[in-house]
Amino acid sequence: MSDFLNISGLHARIDADGAPKEILRGVDLVIPPGEVHAIMGPNGSGKSTLSYVLAGREDYEVTSGAVSFKGQDLLAMEPEERAAAGVFLAFQAPIELPGVNNANFLRTAVNAVRRARGDAELDAVGFLKTVRAATKKLSMSDEMLKRNVNVGFSGGEKKRNEVLQMTMLQPSLAILDETDSGLDVDALRIVADGVNALRSPTFSALVITHHQRLLDYLNPDRVHVMARGRIVHSGGAELAKEIDVQGYASFLAEAA
């Protein structure tokens, strides 16, 4: 068994207006260090829920199963501890923070994580230098740093802002939840470059997507199909191409 990310028998439910609704029904997934895995699957199959549970969102109640990350019990950690440990989630729908300046937000986050990891905090000058280099690489305008976090950002700008945060926070596990949706071709390339820049033997990514295109740039080690709260099928990069042509029908039949 790998000791990087190991999800076994994960069940999670949510309280939907008083009635518990089971969303994850036994997810098994292993991601070794240094690999990029993709999850595809029909709408509502539980992909975002899995990403939230990994990041520590409290609305979802884990009823059974376990997740270990670098040998630690991930589910026992607070969201901020998970971030410090290296987990980063790029949200499918990034949250707006009115009144919170984007640059301040980034610096607060970067320094919180650095502090927790025992690294020296960045002062204003050091931060600006780092963030400027990052925005340049992502072809983002510095103007976005002066605005409030995600407020009034276009869909594509929000996604780029997620990639900027990922770049700045230097995670060892990046979970990208449909970061490619709604992006133009150039932006897609930027997202892929953002992930590829982090690639190393100690970095892994879990990429949730509906499209083949991003995977062309990322060349994933494994592709998993999620349906009805489970991983129902896994394969190599060629699986994504198959799905692009055939859809999910055959896997759903398999899962039923």
Binding site: E58, P79, P94, A109
Partner: peptide, 28 residues
């Protein structure tokens, strides 16, 4: 809750995240 979680998922401890949001509400 979503805003709090967003901040915490970026490594900001809960107490600090709360302060950031309260301050933002008033700064506006």
């Amino acid at each position: 809750d979503e805003q709090l979680f967003y901040l915490r998922s970026r490594g900001v401890p809960e107490a600090q995240a709360r302060r950031i949001l309260v301050e933002a509400f008033l700064l506006e």
